[in-house]
C-alpha cells in the first residue's frame, strides 16, 4: 500500500537554523531516503517552497450544483489569496510517498524520518496515483482510470 507522509514544521524556526546544522539535517533526510530505497519502500519525495510564496485559490459564495455529471459553482467568485489555506503553527513543508505493507509499517517509517524530531507528520493512505513518469498506481478497490478512459480535452 502507498502512503503519503506529510511533513510539517515551524517555517519561521526553520529559517533561522545555521547552514551547517541544516546540512546535517539534510544529511539525515538523505540517509532516510537511502534506507527507504534499500527496503523497496521509496516512491518519491518533495520539499516545498515557503508558504510566503504560496497562493490559495478559493471559490467564495455561490452554491454547488451537479450539472451534466460535473460539479459547478453557480453565483460564486473565484478569489486568489496569498499564503496557505490554513493559518497553523506548523506549515506543510515536504512529503514522502512510500510503499509498505500497512499503516503500522507506515508509522514505523515515519518515526524514522528525521523530520519527526521537529514537527508532526500526517500519514495518509493513498487511493491512487497518476504520474507522467510511471503507470497509474491504484490501491485495492481504488479508482485509477487509464488514459483511454480520460475525456478528450
Amino acid at each position: 500500500m502507498r502512503f503519503l507522509l506529510m511533513l510539517y514544521a515551524e517555517e519561521q524556526a526553520g529559517a533561522t537554523i545555521p547552514p551547517e546544522d541544516m546540512a546535517k539535517a539534510m544529511d539525515g533526510m538523505f540517509a532516510y531516503q537511502q534506507a527507504l530505497t534499500k527496503a523497496g519502500a521509496f516512491v518519491s519525495t518533495s520539499a516545498l517552497g515557503a508558504t510566503t510564496d504560496a497562493r490559495t485559490l478559493r471559490m467564495q459564495g455561490g452554491d454547488i450544483h451537479l450539472v451534466d455529471g460535473a460539479f459547478v459553482n453557480q453565483g460564486g467568485t473565484l478569489n486568489v489569496q496569498e499564503g496557505p489555506y490554513a493559518e497553523t503553527r506548523e506549515q506543510f513543508g515536504g512529503l514522502f510517498v512510500i510503499d509498505v505493507a500497512d499503516m503500522d509499517e507506515a508509522v514505523k517509517w515515519a518515526a524514522r524520518c528525521p523530520a519527526a524530531q521537529w514537527g508532526p507528520i500526517e500519514i495518509r493512505p493513498i487511493v491512487n496515483t497518476m504520474s507522467a513518469n510511471e503507470p497509474a498506481w491504484c490501491a485495492d478497490g481504488g479508482f485509477a482510470p487509464d488514459a483511454g478512459q480520460q475525456p478528450e480535452p
Binding site: 539525515g28 534506507a35 524514522r112
Partner: peptide, 18 residues
C-alpha cells in the same frame, strides 16, 4: 552507515553514526 542512519529512530544514535 548511511543505511544505519536512515533506519534509526533515535537522533542521538543518528548523529553518532553520522
Amino acid at each position: 552507515l548511511t543505511l544505519a542512519m536512515g533506519l534509526s529512530m533515535d537522533p542521538a544514535i543518528r548523529d553518532w553514526l553520522g
